[in-house]
Computed example of a mutant assay.
Amino acid sequence: MAASDRERWDARHTAAGAGSPLPPDALRGRTDLLPSSGRALDVACGRGAVAVWLAMRGLDVVAVDVSPAGLAAGAGLAAAHDVRVRWVEADLDAGFPRDDDRYDVVVCQRFRDPALYPALRAALAPGGLLVVTVLSEVGDAGGPFRAVPGELTAAFAGLEVLAHGEGNGEAHLVARLSA
């Protein structure tokens, strides 16, 4: 990611008000699918709303983002809710930070890079839950940041699909790796 992109995200996160913990979009109405313990990875976590929500549900969370301002906001949100999250600054455009860890839950909300799809899958522990939401061409105009129809189900073929939807400019997938 160019330095100007990082600066743009930092400015956006700095200007935003205090956030609230929120479930990932694709899990709203499906929170029963989430384990009550284990490890979770929040990829492109932004200001940490999902990471803190996961930690509040009893998961040990690692949250990754390029923006130091976003990570600082997330750390403040975690402190306000008395939960721990490990915050990792990483430029996902340079690749997925590999530590060979496996996670019971992997969330990627509103960040789309098809080159990272294999790494998201590889980060799942057996029985792990993948939760992805991206912008989509379906029901909206196309563009370089929007998934084509069927992109998520094709990218994560072989996982058990628990929920999938495309429409109104958004696509989501909730899927499980076999145990």
Rank of each mutant, 00 (worst) to 15 (best):
M1D: 07
A3T: 06
D5S: 00
E7K: 03
D10G: 09
D10T: 12
D10K: 03
R12Y: 01
R12Q: 00
A15M: 04
A15K: 02
A15W: 00
A16Q: 06
G17D: 12
A18K: 12
G19A: 04
S20C: 05
P21R: 14
L22S: 09
D25R: 14
D25W: 15
A26F: 07
A26V: 07
L27T: 10
R28E: 12
R28A: 06
G29Y: 09
T31C: 08
T31R: 06
D32V: 04
L33E: 06
G38N: 01
R39A: 13
D42F: 08
V43G: 13
A44C: 09
C45Y: 02
G46H: 00
G46E: 00
A51S: 15
V52S: 14
V52W: 15
L54E: 09
M56F: 02
R57Y: 02
R57S: 11
G58Y: 01
L59I: 03
D60Y: 04
V61I: 05
V61T: 06
V62L: 15
A63R: 02
A63Q: 06
V64F: 00
V64G: 00
D65Y: 02
D65H: 06
V66D: 01
S67C: 08
P68W: 13
P68S: 14
P68H: 14
A69H: 04
A69V: 07
A69G: 03
G70S: 03
G70A: 01
L71S: 11
G76W: 00
G76D: 14
A80D: 14
H81C: 12
D82V: 01
R84K: 08
V85K: 12
V85N: 13
V88M: 05
E89C: 13
A90M: 05
L92C: 06
L92A: 05
L92Y: 00
L92I: 04
F96P: 07
P97C: 12
R98G: 07
D99F: 15
D100H: 09
D101W: 10
D101S: 13
R102F: 02
Y103N: 04
Y103L: 06
V106F: 13
V106Y: 11
C108K: 03
R110Q: 14
R110L: 15
P114I: 04
P114N: 03
A119F: 01
L120Y: 12
L120E: 07
L120P: 10
R121A: 13
A122P: 10
L124I: 09
G127I: 04
G127K: 07
G128L: 10
L129M: 11
L129V: 07
V131S: 00
V131T: 04
V131W: 03
V132Y: 15
V134W: 15
E137L: 02
V138K: 01
V138Q: 02
G139V: 08
G142N: 03
G143W: 05
G143C: 10
P144W: 05
F145A: 06
R146A: 08
R146C: 11
V148I: 10
P149S: 11
A154K: 15
A155W: 14
F156N: 03
F156S: 06
G158F: 15
G158H: 12
V161P: 02
H164N: 11
H164D: 14
N168L: 10
N168Y: 08
G169Y: 07
E170I: 15
A171V: 12
A171Q: 10
H172K: 05
L173R: 10
L173F: 15
V174Q: 13
R176K: 12
L177A: 09
L177E: 02
S178T: 14
S178C: 03
A179F: 07
